[in-house]
């Protein structure tokens, strides 16, 4: 039987990409690898692929390539809808709000005075983040108006239209940890706690991962968040707030190297299985 075509688009090969490629090889799935930085094709001349796994680190390149493959009729995991929504924190919050998924109070302002007004509404401290970005970069917890003004001044000096959108979120007093759940299709396959003495509990910033049981509440909020952004394979960051679980963000090119041993779940194999389903390869061939 001829297998449908699977393209694997990447730039830098992280451990995640290596693990995913190994999991696909384990299932005897032939993969056409595409090194994104070398791509130079016209819209109507992309290599054909039924399904595309997009694992680009560069989010702008990732979206561009996804749009091209989708225009050519390929099914891309994750879709441009997911990339657009997850790649923009405000779009994520809007999607979560539309779907009724609990999240910390969040708003945007376009002037310094508007930003201060929002901060007063939310109560101190507040969290300011760039609308795009990852791994906790340029995320600030601010305790008073002077600090907010200083950050706004820095952002406006940096230039660029995105730095003139001030994204402000209420600060959630979490118990020294947050939760990352891994959603593959319609399943929450596992979750980890990310524990840190720092208020930013990101493993890229040194937080320690440990297994987190997938409770019915965690499963429900994770699936709701994943569906709200368009589904696919995503990692949902959740905080345990005094009023219950809340979603902080949803990641569309999830990193999982620290979570396989921790959870005992073969995450890349589950991802490969999901892709095989999309390709129409029966599970029995895995």
């Amino acid at each position: 039987m001829t297998q449908p075509g699977l393209a694997f688009v990447h730039d830098r090969l992280r451990p995640e990409e290596e693990l995913l490629l190994a999991a696909l090889a384990q299932r005897d799935v032939s993969v056409q690898r595409v090194y994104a930085p070398q791509l130079a094709v016209s819209v109507d001349a992309l290599p054909a692929a039924d399904v595309v796994i997009n694992r680009c680190l560069s989010q702008s390149r990732s979206l561009a390539i996804t749009l091209l493959y989708e225009a050519a009729g390929s099914l891309v995991v994750n879709s441009s809808e997911v990339l657009r929504t997850c790649g923009d924190k405000l779009a994520t919050n809007a999607a979560l709000a539309r779907a009724g998924v609990p999240a910390p109070r969040t708003g945007v302002a376009f002037t310094a005075s508007g930003a201060l007004e929002l901060c007063e509404q939310f109560g101190w401290p507040v969290v300011m983040k760039p609308i795009t970005g990852s791994w906790g970069r340029m995320v600030s917890r601010l305790s008073d108006p002077d600090a907010v003004m200083a950050v706004i001044e820095h952002r406006e000096t940096l230039g660029g239209p995105q730095h003139k959108i001030h994204y402000i979120q209420e600060y959630v007093a979490k118990p020294g940890r947050d939760i990352r759940s891994f959603v593959v299709g319609d399943s929450v396959i596992c979750a980890i706690y990310r524990t840190s003495e720092d208020w930013i509990t990101n493993t890229a910033r040194g937080a320690v991962a440990s297994n987190c049981p997938v409770t019915p509440q965690l499963e429900a909020i994770s699936l709701a968040a994943a569906r709200a952004v368009g589904g696919g394979m995503v990692a949902v960051d959740v905080v345990e707030s005094p009023s219950g679980l809340q979603v902080i963000e949803v990641n569309h090119t999830m990193e999982f190297r620290n979570s396989i041993t921790t959870t005992g779940v073969d995450i890349p194999d589950r991802m490969a299985g999901y892709v095989c389903d999309r390709l129409g390869i029966p599970a029995s061939t895995a």
Binding site: Q38, L57, T132, G133, S134, W135, A235, T253, M254
Partner: peptide
């Protein structure tokens, strides 16, 4: 270094992070 071409083999300095990188 990152392998950016195989033919000819080309290696270039690999930045730790770039502005729009993320998950």
């Amino acid at each position: 270094l990152e392998v950016i071409s195989l033919d000819p083999l080309t290696l270039d300095l690999a930045p730790e992070v770039d502005e729009d990188w993320g998950e």
